[in-house]
Design a protein around this nucleic acid. Structure first.
Length: 714
DNA sequence: GTGCCTCGAGTTCA
DNA sequence: CTCGAGGCAC
C-alpha cells in the first residue's frame, strides 16, 4: 500500500471510492448478518486508511464518507436486526378445495403419486405477532420482530420480561433461533383494558393490538407489566438440526422449555387436515386466546428443504383461514385514486363500521368492471348488480386486513342512486385516462406531468424495498414536494447542500429540529451507496418489481452496462414474435430476454423508459449522486457460481422450479435458452433442439445425475 | 394456444 | 391481501 503522502489526487479519489465500498460491505456483514467477513483489526485498518487519506485530501472527502458513519445510531426507536433466515408469511387457503389443492401441488412438485404417504402437521394459527429469538450457547442474545420479513426491530429487553421466554436454555446447541407468536389471552386482555380505563389510559381494540403495543414499548418496565404469552412453533438458524420432522422438532422446542400449542397434530393427507381444522374451529370460542385459522406444514423436514421457498412464502406450508367477519354499511361516495403507474383505482368511502375489531371507513373497489358488476370480477357481486353511491353494502376484511365490498343490498338502494360513471379523464392532471384492450385497468396518460403519478413515484423511490431512507417516508415526501424542495430523486441527495447550512426552513417546520434534520441528512447520505437491485427497483419502471430487479442485477455487471444495452435495444426493431429465439435477431433485446424471468413486457417498458429523454435525465441526475454496489456473489465457492445454466428436457429427480431455485442459490444464472453465453446445459430425457444447439456451440452438457453430483453437498 | 405459477401494483388501519 | 397479467412449460 502506498504511503498517503505520495498518493496523487486521482489515486486518492479512487482508493476512497473503493474503501467506501469495502467498509460498507463489512459494516453490513457485521451489523446485519452477524457474520463479520473481516477481522476487527483489518476493519480498523481500513477505517484508519480512509481517515488518513481524507486528512491528506480534505477536498476529496465524500459525502458518504464511512468516517462519518461510525457509531451512527438509528434516528429513533428500536435498532434494526436483519434475520439470518428471512421470516416469511404464509400462503392462504380459504376453503377445503384450497387445502386439497395445496396437497396436490406439493405432490406434483416433489413428483409424488397420489398414493405415496405424505404427512403434515396442523396447528392453530395464533393471532398475535411473530418474534424471533436468538440463543447462543443457551443464552438469549436478542429478540427481533418480524418487520418486513428481512429486517425486524430489536425488542430484546422487552422479550426478556415475558415469562414464556426462557433467558437461558440448558443443553441447547451453540446456535438456536426460535420463532413463535407473542399473544395476549382474552382474560388478560380484559383485565388490562379495565386497568387502562381506570388509570385514564387508552384501551386497546383487540388482544392483537394490545400485544403489539405492549411488545413495542421503549420502556421495558411497561412491557413487564403487560401479561404477554409466547408459543414457539418454528426456527431460523441452527447449529444442529432439531429433528427429522416438524412434529419432532416441536417436541424438541418443548424440551427446551418453550410453550408449544397442544392442539398441534400430525395428519395424513388433506382429509385428516380438514377434520382437524373443523375440530379446532369448534373449540375456537373456548380456547381463551385469538386464533385466525390453522397452519399446515409438511412434516418431513427433508421434504421441506426440497420444496423450499417462493419469493414470499414457503411451498411447504399454508394457512387455512377461518371465514372473515362481515358487516353492512352505507357506501357514501366513490373516489378515484391515481397510482404510480397512472392506474385509476376506485375507493369506496363508507359510513364507518366495525369489522373484526377495527373501524373501517374505506374499502377497495378494485376497478371499473367491479363497480359495473360486469364479467369475471363483477360476477362475485350477487346478481351481477352494479355498485352505486348511496348503496347499502356488505364489507369484510380480506385476509383480515384489506377491506373489500362483497355484496350490495338492492332492496335498500335509494331511488335517486345513479349508476357510477367511471371517469375517462384523470382528475389530477386532466390527461386522458385510457384503458388498453384486454386490460382491466384504466390509466392516466399524463406520466410525470401528473402530480399524483409524480408523488407516488417518489414515494415508491423511498419505500422499504427501494432506497428505504430512514426519516423520509411517504408523509415527508409529500410535504417536501409541496414545499418545492424535491421534485425528483436526485433532489433528495442535494437536500443537505441546499438546506444543510441554515437549516432554518426545516427547523421552522413543525416536528423538525436541528437534530432530526441532521439525522435525516445522515440517513440520506447512508443511501448514497446502494445495492444495484434496490436502485433498479427504486426507478419505479412498470413491470420492474423486486424480483425482476434482482434478476436484472444478477445478470448485468453494473448500471452502465445495463443502460447501454437498453440504449442499443431501443435502436433495434422490437420483435413482435413472442418466441425468444426470434428475438435473437436483435442482440441487445436478446440480452434481456435470455434472462430467466425477464420477458417482453418488462424489456419493452424498461427500454422505453430509458429512451424517454425526460425520464432518462432524471435517472442520470440521480446516478451522479450514487455509488451503486455490484451484486454480491452469493456462493463464490460453488462450482456453478457465476455460470449460466440452462435446463432442458424432463427432470426426473426434481422439478424445474426446484432445479432453478437450487442453481440460483448457488450463485448460477439460469437462462431459458441456449446461447454462446451458456456455460452448462443440464439435459434430461426428451431434450430436443436445445441439446442440439448446445452441442453445435460446443457447450458442456450433463444429465440430471451429473448435475446432482456437481452440486452434491452444497 | 392453453394452463400453471409467480410477480407486480393496487389496496387499509394501527 | 388480492387481482390481473407476465413469463414459461407443455
Amino acid at each position: 500500500m502506498k504511503d498517503v503522502q505520495t498518493l496523487t489526487q486521482e489515486e486518492a479519489a479512487a482508493e476512497l471510492a473503493q474503501l467506501a465500498i469495502d467498509l460498507s460491505a463489512a459494516n453490513r456483514a457485521y451489523h446485519q448478518n452477524d457474520a463479520p467477513e473481516i477481522s476487527d483489526a483489518d476493519y480498523d485498518a481500513l477505517k484508519r486508511r480512509n481517515a488518513e487519506i481524507e486528512a491528506q485530501f480534505p477536498e476529496l472527502k465524500r459525502t458518504d464518507s464511512p468516517t462519518d458513519k461510525v457509531g451512527a445510531e438509528p434516528a429513533s426507536g428500536f435498532q434494526k436486526i436483519t434475520h439470518s433466515v428471512p421470516m416469511l408469511s404464509l400462503g392462504n387457503a380459504f376453503d377445503d378445495g384450497d387445502v386439497t389443492e395445496f396437497d396436490r401441488s406439493i405432490r406434483k412438485y416433489l413428483g409424488f403419486g397420489d398414493e405415496d404417504p405424505l404427512a403434515y402437521t396442523a396447528e392453530p394459527k395464533i393471532d398475535g405477532l411473530s418474534l424471533s429469538l436468538r440463543y447462543e450457547n443457551g443464552q438469549l442474545i436478542h429478540a427481533a420482530t418480524r418487520g418486513d420479513g428481512t429486517t425486524g426491530e430489536n425488542v430484546t429487553s422487552n422479550a426478556r420480561t415475558i415469562a414464556d421466554i426462557p433467558a437461558h436454555i440448558p443443553n441447547a446447541p451453540d446456535l438456536l433461533e426460535i420463532r413463535g407468536e407473542v399473544y395476549m389471552s382474552h382474560a388478560d386482555f380484559e383485565a388490562l383494558n379495565t386497568r387502562q380505563s381506570e388509570t385514564g389510559d387508552k384501551t386497546f381494540a383487540n388482544p392483537r393490538n394490545a400485544a403489539a403495543g405492549s411488545l413495542r414499548q421503549l420502556d421495558a418496565r411497561i412491557t413487564e407489566s403487560r401479561p404477554l404469552c409466547f408459543f414457539a412453533y418454528a426456527w431460523g438458524s441452527l447449529s444442529a438440526p432439531l429433528g427429522e420432522t416438524q412434529s419432532g422438532a416441536i417436541q424438541q422446542l418443548k424440551n427446551f422449555g418453550f410453550q408449544i400449542n397442544e392442539l398441534t397434530k400430525t395428519c395424513n393427507g388433506p382429509v385428516e387436515m380438514i377434520e382437524h381444522y373443523r375440530d379446532i374451529e369448534t373449540k375456537r370460542a373456548t380456547l381463551g386466546y385469538d386464533i385466525d385459522g390453522v397452519v399446515y406444514k409438511v412434516d418431513d423436514l427433508a421434504l421441506q428443504a426440497r420444496l423450499g421457498f417462493r419469493s414470499t412464502t414457503p411451498r411447504w406450508a399454508i394457512a387455512h383461514k377461518f371465514p372473515a367477519e362481515l358487516a353492512w354499511t352505507r357506501l357514501e361516495t366513490i373516489d378515484i385514486q391515481v397510482g404510480r403507474t397512472g392506474a385509476l383505482s376506485p375507493v369506496a368511502r363508507l359510513q364507518p363500521v366495525t369489522v373484526g375489531g377495527v373501524i373501517v371507513s374505506n374499502a377497495t373497489l378494485h376497478n371499473e368492471d367491479y363497480i359495473a358488476g360486469l364479467g369475471g370480477d363483477g360476477s362475485k357481486i350477487r346478481g351481477g348488480k352494479d355498485i352505486r353511491e348511496g348503496d347499502w353494502v356488505q364489507v369484510y376484511r380480506a385476509g383480515d386486513v384489506i377491506p373489500k365490498v362483497a355484496d350490495v343490498d338492492l332492496t335498500k338502494r335509494p331511488k335517486t342512486a345513479m349508476p357510477y360513471v367511471f371517469p375517462t379523464v384523470c382528475h389530477e392532471c386532466g390527461s386522458d385516462a385510457i384503458r388498453d384492450d384486454g386490460d382491466a385497468i384504466r390509466r392516466c396518460t399524463g406520466g410525470l406531468i401528473c402530480p399524483a403519478q409524480a408523488i407516488e413515484k417518489l414515494k415508491h423511490f423511498v419505500s422499504r424495498a427501494a432506497f428505504d431512507i430512514e426519516g423520509l417516508g411517504a408523509k415527508q415526501v409529500e410535504q417536501f414536494l409541496e414545499d418545492g424542495w424535491i421534485k425528483e430523486p436526485a433532489d433528495i441527495f442535494e437536500l443537505r447542500a441546499r438546506f444543510g447550512a441554515g437549516l432554518q426552513q426545516l427547523k421552522n417546520r413543525e416536528g423538525w429540529g436541528e437534530k432530526s434534520a441532521e439525522n435525516l441528512f445522515d440517513a440520506i447520505d447512508e443511501r448514497r451507496t446502494i445495492e444495484f437491485h434496490r436502485f433498479l427497483f427504486g426507478l419505479g419502471i412498470r413491470h420492474l418489481g423486486e424480483a425482476a430487479a434482482k434478476d436484472l442485477a444478477r445478470n448485468f455487471a453494473d448500471w452502465e452496462t445495463l443502460a447501454d444495452t437498453a440504449d442499443r435495444a431501443a435502436l433495434e426493431p422490437a420483435t413482435t414474435d413472442a418466441s425468444k429465439d426470434a428475438a435473437a435477431q436483435s442482440p441487445a433485446w436478446a440480452t434481456f430476454l435470455e434472462i430467466d424471468g425477464i420477458g417482453r413486457a418488462l424489456t419493452q417498458s424498461l427500454v422505453a423508459a430509458l429512451a424517454q429523454d425526460h425520464e432518462r435525465a432524471v435517472i442520470d441526475r440521480l446516478v451522479a449522486h450514487l455509488t451503486i454496489l455490484p451484486p454480491e456473489d452469493q456462493a463464490s465457492d460453488s462450482p456453478v457460481a457465476g455460470k449460466t445454466v440452462v435446463f432442458t428436457g424432463t427432470l426426473e429427480k426434481m422439478t424445474r422450479a426446484e432445479a432453478k431455485a437450487r442453481a440460483e442459490a448457488l450463485g448460477a444464472k439460469v437462462s431459458g435458452s441456449v446461447s454462446a453465453k451458456t456455460d452448462l446445459l443440464v439435459a434430461g430425457p426428451g431434450a430436443g433442439s436445445k441439446a442440439k444447439k448446445a452441442t453445435d456451440l460446443g457447450i458442456e452438457t450433463i444429465d440430471e445425475d451429473g448435475w446432482i453430483a456437481l452440486i452434491d453437498g452444497l
